[in-house]
Amino acid sequence: MSAPLPALRSTPKRRLIVRGLLVAAYLTLALIVFIFGRGHTLLLDNKTAADGSYTGFRTLSVSVNGGAPLQLALRERDKALVVGQRHTVRFEANGQVYEASFKLPFGEDIILVSLPKLAAGVEPFWEPFRSEPIPRAAPVEEELPSLDNPPPIGG
């Protein structure tokens, strides 16, 4: 019986290296998934500016990243769910085609994309959308989570 080769023998050093590599792979995968899997909501807007600096279109057809086109009338807004940070918006209005690519900030959940702004060449044509919480008139008694009545087994 011959002894195992030194390179294949399980030593504390080798074990440490393998464990270190596993932790590194775990963290790398987590980071990749975290960055490239994060979703954002794009609000596609077709409204005229309050100061009249750009005007909305009567109708337009817009698609995000080559997806299914959405129809928007004047003063309408629709949403598209996107994953990752870099995206392309393409829309057609009054017989003309407009297209632009942009990179979203990582931390923002909802982005308002103004299509008339894009057509008018106003930069930036998008901005983070943060809705102000509406203060409640009176504290609403919210039902606390029920710990009774578990769902039937097996789903």
Binding site: V33, F34, G37, R38, G39, V83
Partner: peptide
């Protein structure tokens, strides 16, 4: 964190 689809499951 709004991680969508299969990456969300992996996360």
């Amino acid at each position: 964190w709004n991680i969508i689809g299969v990456p969300g499951l992996i996360f």
